[in-house]
Amino acid sequence: MGVIALAGLIVTTSGRAEASSCSGPLSGGEIRVVVVVDSSDLGGGASATCLVVPAGTTGSQLLARRSAELGTGSVRYGSSGLLCAIDGLPAAGCGDHNAGGFDYWGYFIGRSGSWVFGNINPFTRRLSDGDIEGWRYVRGGTGSAQDPAPRIVPSQSLFPSLRPGEPAFVEQPAAASGTVPSLSSSMTIDVSPEQTFDSLDVASIATTTLEPIAVEGVALASSRTSDSNLGRWFAIAAVFVLIAMMTGGAWIQTRRSQ
């Protein structure tokens, strides 16, 4: 199983290597989209990531690419298809009951300055250029439009500028990092949990650049070592020997009684 997951990720990472940067020109069939993830209620922060993906990517595939690029571990789903955890948050549980409501990841679609609660299926929603998607962890929510939206306002300013010659990143105060961030294929803007913004306050923004993703760091799907897998296969084989004995005995008994 680990080998298959590994292969999938290699495909993803090689795809990333060929994608154009979020700030540079797009090759044919590619679009730029921004995905906002707000895990403030869990102790994380709110982040907005710009990604370049092939046209027709679904909302769920977008999340998977984001996790791959940021190296935060694959998205966890429950057996019914409910999204349980993004970036490994929450560590356990999935859509649990809480004070008359549910704890879950709410899905929002950014439309010209405000969030619309997504009554759309993220598994089938095809993205187009300039779409902004949002995910917010809701505690005790009702699963309807009353649930709180992500704290980053959806606006076009989340996309890096495209004009040639201009720096492909948001302006920042020199005090923030002291270095000029280099061009990177995607950019993440982090916001600390306590603050909400109506517009981007350049002074408080810190930008980070991404390192090229190390293949083994991302291969979180197969977190087990191959040794314990072997042990499991032995146990399974033993049980199937038991089953074969019982079935064979039953077969012989049926033959004898006829």
Partner: peptide, 22 residues
């Protein structure tokens, strides 16, 4: 008792349950 399918893993076999079934 509920092996994960996403990501897919080899199901573990709890000995207690097997003994109970025997």
């Amino acid at each position: 008792l509920n092996p994960s399918t996403n990501p897919l893993e080899v199901p573990a076999v709890p000995v207690v349950a097997v003994l109970g079934l025997l």
